[in-house]
Protein backbone atom coordinates (compact mmCIF):
# COMPACT_ATOMS: atom_id res chain seq x y z
CA UNK A 1 0.00 0.00 0.00
CA UNK A 2 1.32 3.41 -0.78
CA UNK A 3 1.95 5.38 2.27
CA UNK A 4 3.94 8.37 3.16
CA UNK A 5 4.88 9.35 6.61
CA UNK A 6 3.96 12.56 8.23
CA UNK A 7 5.75 14.19 11.01
CA UNK A 8 3.39 14.16 13.92
CA UNK A 9 5.55 15.88 16.40
CA UNK A 10 2.55 16.90 18.41
CA UNK A 11 1.98 13.22 18.99
CA UNK A 12 5.07 12.92 21.07
CA UNK A 13 4.10 15.83 23.21
CA UNK A 14 1.67 13.78 25.24
CA UNK A 15 3.18 11.72 27.96
CA UNK A 16 0.16 9.55 28.64
CA UNK A 17 -1.73 7.24 26.36
CA UNK A 18 0.26 6.46 23.30
CA UNK A 19 0.61 9.89 21.96
CA UNK A 20 -3.04 10.37 21.08
CA UNK A 21 -4.76 13.69 21.26
CA UNK A 22 -6.73 14.20 24.44
CA UNK A 23 -9.98 14.39 22.56
CA UNK A 24 -9.33 11.00 20.95
CA UNK A 25 -8.61 9.43 24.32
CA UNK A 26 -11.71 11.02 25.77
CA UNK A 27 -13.94 9.88 22.91
CA UNK A 28 -12.43 6.41 22.98
CA UNK A 29 -13.02 5.97 26.70
CA UNK A 30 -16.58 7.19 26.49
CA UNK A 31 -17.37 5.07 23.45
CA UNK A 32 -15.78 2.06 25.11
CA UNK A 33 -18.03 2.52 28.13
CA UNK A 34 -21.12 2.74 25.92
CA UNK A 35 -20.13 -0.54 24.32
CA UNK A 36 -19.72 -2.06 27.74
CA UNK A 37 -23.16 -0.82 28.77
CA UNK A 38 -24.57 -2.73 25.79
CA UNK A 39 -22.97 -5.84 27.24
CA UNK A 40 -24.54 -5.14 30.61
CA UNK A 41 -27.98 -4.73 29.08
CA UNK A 42 -27.71 -8.13 27.47
CA UNK A 43 -26.37 -9.66 30.68
CA UNK A 44 -29.56 -8.55 32.41
CA UNK A 45 -31.35 -9.42 29.18
CA UNK A 46 -31.28 -13.12 30.00
CA UNK A 47 -33.11 -12.38 33.24
CA UNK A 48 -35.59 -10.10 31.53
CA UNK A 49 -36.31 -12.83 28.98
CA UNK A 50 -36.80 -15.38 31.75
CA UNK A 51 -39.09 -12.91 33.50
CA UNK A 52 -41.17 -12.39 30.36
CA UNK A 53 -41.48 -16.11 29.81
CA UNK A 54 -42.46 -17.04 33.35
CA UNK A 55 -44.74 -14.11 33.89
CA UNK A 56 -46.60 -14.97 30.70
CA UNK A 57 -46.81 -18.59 31.84
CA UNK A 58 -47.81 -18.00 35.46
CA UNK A 59 -49.47 -14.58 35.75
CA UNK A 60 -51.31 -15.51 38.95
CA UNK A 61 -48.17 -16.61 40.71
CA UNK A 62 -46.59 -13.22 40.02
CA UNK A 63 -49.63 -11.27 41.19
CA UNK A 64 -49.89 -13.41 44.30
CA UNK A 65 -46.31 -13.24 45.51
CA UNK A 66 -45.38 -9.72 44.55
CA UNK A 67 -47.72 -8.58 47.34
CA UNK A 68 -45.18 -9.86 49.86
CA UNK A 69 -42.60 -7.38 48.59
CA UNK A 70 -42.22 -4.19 50.56
CA UNK A 71 -43.64 -1.56 48.18
CA UNK A 72 -42.72 1.38 50.41
CA UNK A 73 -39.08 0.38 50.57
CA UNK A 74 -39.12 -0.18 46.82
CA UNK A 75 -40.52 3.29 46.12
CA UNK A 76 -38.09 4.86 48.56
CA UNK A 77 -35.15 3.13 46.91
CA UNK A 78 -36.33 4.23 43.49
CA UNK A 79 -36.29 7.84 44.59
CA UNK A 80 -32.87 7.39 46.19
CA UNK A 81 -31.41 5.91 43.05
CA UNK A 82 -32.93 8.54 40.76
CA UNK A 83 -31.57 11.23 43.03
CA UNK A 84 -28.13 9.64 42.96
CA UNK A 85 -28.19 9.74 39.18
CA UNK A 86 -28.92 13.45 39.42
CA UNK A 87 -26.01 14.06 41.80
CA UNK A 88 -23.73 11.98 39.60
CA UNK A 89 -24.67 14.11 36.60
CA UNK A 90 -23.82 17.19 38.66
CA UNK A 91 -20.50 15.70 39.72
CA UNK A 92 -19.64 15.27 36.03
CA UNK A 93 -20.73 18.84 35.34
CA UNK A 94 -18.53 20.27 38.08
CA UNK A 95 -15.57 18.09 37.19
CA UNK A 96 -15.90 19.48 33.69
CA UNK A 97 -15.89 23.00 35.10
CA UNK A 98 -12.89 22.11 37.27
CA UNK A 99 -14.70 22.87 40.52
CA UNK A 100 -12.88 20.40 42.73
CA UNK A 101 -14.87 20.95 45.92
CA UNK A 102 -18.29 20.63 44.31
CA UNK A 103 -17.17 17.51 42.47
CA UNK A 104 -16.16 15.98 45.79
CA UNK A 105 -19.47 16.91 47.40
CA UNK A 106 -21.62 15.46 44.67
CA UNK A 107 -19.55 12.31 44.28
CA UNK A 108 -19.85 11.83 48.04
CA UNK A 109 -23.63 12.31 47.95
CA UNK A 110 -23.89 9.80 45.12
CA UNK A 111 -21.86 7.34 47.15
CA UNK A 112 -24.06 7.84 50.20
CA UNK A 113 -27.18 7.30 48.08
CA UNK A 114 -25.71 4.03 46.87
CA UNK A 115 -25.06 3.04 50.47
CA UNK A 116 -28.61 3.94 51.53
CA UNK A 117 -29.97 1.87 48.68
CA UNK A 118 -27.84 -1.06 49.77
CA UNK A 119 -28.90 -0.76 53.41
CA UNK A 120 -32.60 -0.62 52.58
CA UNK A 121 -32.15 -3.59 50.28
CA UNK A 122 -30.34 -5.42 53.07
CA UNK A 123 -33.34 -4.99 55.36
CA UNK A 124 -35.66 -6.17 52.64
CA UNK A 125 -33.62 -9.32 52.11
CA UNK A 126 -33.20 -9.90 55.84
CA UNK A 127 -36.94 -9.65 56.34
CA UNK A 128 -37.54 -12.18 53.57
CA UNK A 129 -35.00 -14.59 55.01
CA UNK A 130 -36.68 -14.33 58.43
CA UNK A 131 -39.88 -15.46 56.76
CA UNK A 132 -37.91 -18.32 55.20
CA UNK A 133 -38.41 -17.00 51.72
CA UNK A 134 -35.42 -18.12 49.70
CA UNK A 135 -34.76 -18.14 45.96
CA UNK A 136 -35.83 -21.78 45.88
CA UNK A 137 -39.35 -20.94 47.11
CA UNK A 138 -40.79 -20.42 43.64
CA UNK A 139 -40.03 -18.97 40.23
CA UNK A 140 -41.13 -15.48 41.23
CA UNK A 141 -38.75 -15.30 44.14
CA UNK A 142 -36.00 -16.92 42.15
CA UNK A 143 -36.38 -14.10 39.63
CA UNK A 144 -36.65 -11.50 42.36
CA UNK A 145 -33.45 -12.58 44.06
CA UNK A 146 -31.54 -13.10 40.82
CA UNK A 147 -32.42 -9.74 39.28
CA UNK A 148 -32.16 -7.59 42.38
CA UNK A 149 -29.10 -9.51 43.52
CA UNK A 150 -27.29 -9.01 40.22
CA UNK A 151 -28.35 -5.37 40.32
CA UNK A 152 -27.01 -5.09 43.87
CA UNK A 153 -23.62 -6.38 42.69
CA UNK A 154 -23.64 -3.61 40.11
CA UNK A 155 -24.46 -1.04 42.78
CA UNK A 156 -21.43 -2.20 44.77
CA UNK A 157 -19.18 -2.05 41.73
CA UNK A 158 -20.52 1.43 41.01
CA UNK A 159 -19.78 2.49 44.58
CA UNK A 160 -16.22 1.24 44.30
CA UNK A 161 -15.83 3.24 41.09
CA UNK A 162 -17.15 6.35 42.82
CA UNK A 163 -14.69 5.85 45.67
CA UNK A 164 -11.88 5.65 43.16
CA UNK A 165 -13.14 8.82 41.47
CA UNK A 166 -13.27 10.57 44.85
CA UNK A 167 -9.68 9.60 45.48
CA UNK A 168 -8.58 10.88 42.09
CA UNK A 169 -10.51 14.09 42.60
CA UNK A 170 -8.98 14.73 46.04
CA UNK A 171 -5.56 14.48 44.41
CA UNK A 172 -6.68 17.15 42.00
CA UNK A 173 -6.47 14.93 38.95
CA UNK A 174 -9.53 16.42 37.29
CA UNK A 175 -8.42 19.98 37.91
CA UNK A 176 -5.04 19.43 36.34
CA UNK A 177 -6.07 17.01 33.65
CA UNK A 178 -8.98 15.42 31.91
CA UNK A 179 -12.29 14.74 33.59
CA UNK A 180 -12.86 11.69 31.39
CA UNK A 181 -12.87 9.17 34.28
CA UNK A 182 -15.76 10.99 35.99
CA UNK A 183 -17.82 11.00 32.83
CA UNK A 184 -17.11 7.33 32.13
CA UNK A 185 -17.70 6.26 35.73
CA UNK A 186 -20.87 8.35 35.66
CA UNK A 187 -22.15 6.43 32.64
CA UNK A 188 -21.76 3.22 34.59
CA UNK A 189 -23.64 4.61 37.57
CA UNK A 190 -26.49 5.77 35.35
CA UNK A 191 -26.77 2.26 33.95
CA UNK A 192 -27.32 0.96 37.47
CA UNK A 193 -30.17 3.45 37.67
CA UNK A 194 -31.52 2.47 34.24
CA UNK A 195 -31.74 -1.20 35.16
CA UNK A 196 -33.54 -0.34 38.39
CA UNK A 197 -36.03 1.82 36.50
CA UNK A 198 -37.20 -1.38 34.82
CA UNK A 199 -36.77 -3.75 37.76
CA UNK A 200 -38.90 -1.65 40.07
CA UNK A 201 -42.21 -1.85 38.16
CA UNK A 202 -41.51 -5.44 37.05
CA UNK A 203 -41.11 -6.61 40.63
CA UNK A 204 -43.11 -4.26 42.82
CA UNK A 205 -45.91 -3.01 40.59
CA UNK A 206 -47.67 -6.06 39.26
CA UNK A 207 -51.32 -5.14 38.90
Amino acid sequence: MSTTTADHTEDHAHAHGHGLGEAVTHDAAKFGMWLFLGTEILLFGGLFAAYALFRAKYPDLFVEYHKNLDLEKGVFNTFVLLFSSFTMALAVLFAQRKKQLYTTIFLAITFVCGAIFAIVKYFEYAHKFEDHIYPSKNIFYALYYMTTGLHMIHVFIGMIIILALLGMNMKGKFVKGRYTPVEVGGLYWHLVDLIWIYLFPLMYLIG
Binding site: L35, L42, L47, P135, S136, A142, Y145, L150
Partner: peptide, 25 residues
Protein backbone atom coordinates in the same frame (compact mmCIF):
# COMPACT_ATOMS: atom_id res chain seq x y z
CA UNK B 1 -17.94 -11.06 21.33
CA UNK B 2 -19.32 -7.91 22.86
CA UNK B 3 -23.03 -8.56 22.49
CA UNK B 4 -23.49 -12.33 22.46
CA UNK B 5 -21.14 -13.31 25.27
CA UNK B 6 -23.12 -11.63 28.10
CA UNK B 7 -26.08 -13.87 27.33
CA UNK B 8 -24.06 -17.03 27.85
CA UNK B 9 -22.62 -15.35 30.94
CA UNK B 10 -26.04 -15.00 32.52
CA UNK B 11 -27.03 -18.48 31.31
CA UNK B 12 -24.09 -20.12 33.01
CA UNK B 13 -24.67 -18.00 36.10
CA UNK B 14 -28.27 -19.24 36.18
CA UNK B 15 -27.03 -22.81 35.80
CA UNK B 16 -24.68 -22.31 38.74
CA UNK B 17 -27.55 -20.84 40.77
CA UNK B 18 -29.79 -23.69 39.71
CA UNK B 19 -27.26 -26.15 41.06
CA UNK B 20 -26.39 -24.27 44.22
CA UNK B 21 -29.60 -22.43 45.18
CA UNK B 22 -32.15 -24.61 43.42
CA UNK B 23 -33.89 -21.68 41.71
CA UNK B 24 -35.81 -23.92 39.34
CA UNK B 25 -35.61 -21.91 36.12
Amino acid sequence: QLLATPVVGITLLLLIMEKSLDIGF
